[in-house]
Amino acid sequence: MKITAVIPARYASTRFVGKALEDIQGRPMVQHVYERTSRATLVSDVIVATDDERIAQAVRAFGGRVEMTRADHETGTDRLAEVAARIDAEILVNVQGDEPLIEPGMIDQAIAPLMHDPTLQMATLKSRIKTLHDFLSPNVVKVVADLKGNVLYFSRSPLPNFRDKWNDLKDEAFVSGKLLCFKHVGLYVYRRDFLPVFTALKPTYLELSEKLEQLRALENGYRIKVVETEFDSIGVDTPADLEKVLEKLNAQGAR
């Protein structure tokens, strides 16, 4: 089974223009993402999908594979679907281009459900919430699932709502496991045939309300498997996030 990871990378990011090319210990951020993704055991090939020649040149310079895409895509999934139509792969992994610390094991964990269940079209990841700040923050997407690991809902609001336990909303309660809550990790795996179906669907009410594209799949009755991961990463949305990445790498002495 051929599995290809695609890294959508834009230059004109709203909050951090040109972040894909920001230097991290002598290499552009997109190279860190590419190299870490390449280490995933289940991934056969890695492609950077971009509409910007500056990013394309940087990828070619380190020997990476790049596919140029249209500039009018509204989401990374749309960019992924364009690339998927051109290549020979049964499963596509959408790896965010602003995750320079992504663990290869996370990618393998997200892929595994589609390898074991031929009826499954889409999978993603979740990790434990351990702070009250993350639980309450609208910038941290929460996810709840059924007992079989199928997603019930994603939300920017606190989820679930602890009706009788608001006095327990402290960091310790989350760390100890007294309150089990999960944040969504934005790494997606799709069966190739599902991508054109998904991207052809019109945006839905809940999707537009929460500004969460994955709700479109749920509202149209598609099942999403979510796997818990013990790994954590730092998404780079702002220059401050980049500083956190550099601090972590320097503390690890890693390159």
Rank of each mutant, 00 (worst) to 15 (best):
Y11L: 08
A9H: 11
R223D: 14
Y205N: 04
V93N: 05
P239L: 03
R216W: 05
L242M: 10
A81R: 10
P8K: 07
V83A: 06
P138L: 10
L215P: 00
D168N: 01
D168L: 05
V143E: 03
E228H: 07
L80V: 14
R255I: 10
I7W: 12
V33E: 14
L212R: 11
R255F: 09
S137G: 04
P104E: 11
Q109I: 08
K165A: 06
S13E: 11
V144T: 06
P158F: 05
G64D: 08
F198R: 02
M68D: 07
Q252E: 15
K142E: 02
E219A: 10
L136C: 04
T124V: 09
A84F: 07
G76W: 02
E103V: 07
E22D: 01
K170N: 14
H133G: 00
S44K: 09
I87E: 12
I91Y: 09
T124E: 10
T69F: 00
N167M: 00
E22N: 01
D146Q: 02
V48P: 10
R70L: 11
T238D: 05
L147Q: 09
R15M: 05
M106V: 08
E172S: 11
E207S: 14
A110W: 11
D78L: 14
A81V: 05
S155I: 02
I91N: 11
T131L: 02
G26F: 12
P239T: 00
Q96G: 15
H73N: 13
D232K: 11
L147C: 03
T77W: 06
P196W: 07
L187H: 05
A61H: 13
R163M: 12
E74Q: 12
K178S: 06
D98L: 07
E22C: 04
L132G: 02
V245D: 01
A173Q: 00
L101D: 06
I224W: 07
F182N: 01
T204C: 11
R163Q: 09
G26R: 15
